[in-house]
Design a protein around this nucleic acid. Sequence first.
DNA 1: AAACTGTGCAACCGCTAGTAC
DNA 2: AGTACTAGCGGTTGCACAGTT
Length: 299
Amino acid sequence: MGRAPCCEKEGLNKGRWTAEEDEILLKYIAEHGEGAWRSLPKNAGLLRCGKSCRLRWINYLRADLKRGNISNEEEQVIIKLHASLGNRWSVIAAQLPGRTDNEIKNYWNSHLSRRIHSFRRLAGGETIIVDLGNVPGGGKRRFGRTSLTKMNKSSPSPGATSQRKEHQRDGHATQKTMTHGHSNLSLGSSSTSAETEKEGSSTITFNCLEFVLEDLLGPTVERSGEEEEMKMGEAVEEEGKAKGKGPTEMEEMVDWDLEGLEEKMWEVETSEMWASWLWEMGGVSGGCEEDLFCSWLLA
DNA sequence: AAACTGTGCAACCGCTAGTAC
DNA sequence: AGTACTAGCGGTTGCACAGTT
């Protein structure tokens, strides 16, 4: 037996809410409290689905909602949490008072997803976050509205430098650093860490934001390179067998990661820049750009 | 000025988990 | 245990708006 629809759909209003509808909903909730969404529209005299009422209330009408632009601090929280939690918008939103999951999701999809690429090493489980929005030429486009984010944040915040300094570590840290313009991506592994006091922790720093990989992704298991490669292959193969069709989730993830950055690299037509970054990384030599990139990504 | 195109965001949809009966 | 319902989540869509050509 199928489930009954949450409401009769015929004759109901859809699309944008009018000020009158908002007023009715606000008034009703003020008098009766929220909840009982199924019966609410009928009782309140709204030609809306209960689900729609609930969504309108949660995402727009609630008094405790914070309106206005997402701040730099909030953005950093979103980026950081997304790197570790993925698309668990409600969990991320819970860390940002006054923000809804829908708002966070929209912000990610419209502002950040085009800008932030995260690359996750399969075996090591490490996540590398690259902000392509700061790449010169990355915003090259022919038509269309200018991103408000880019307009508002075309220059780094004054606090960026000091914040960056705060995160600098003592001890025997080894870092691979790539810089270009205002962008700064560091891949590091430190034997001591003043902040985390974790020995041998891996860190990613990008534009004053530092990530301790173990904190984000949990402990990693050390394996030799060859063994690691074999196990990765086996895992992909077994997953494929289990599903029995199409590319596996892992395969798709790898494909997306590589294709995404590769596409971006060619799109911006600044391969020499990427190449210079790669050379700056050291330890990679010879081969085509793709080889170099893969060496860096999987090194 | 018009056409074109990308952006931002509200709202919808389908699905799942939890709960009450 | 089965059913109905609610709440919540994440993906997707539609459209107004604004910038570029």
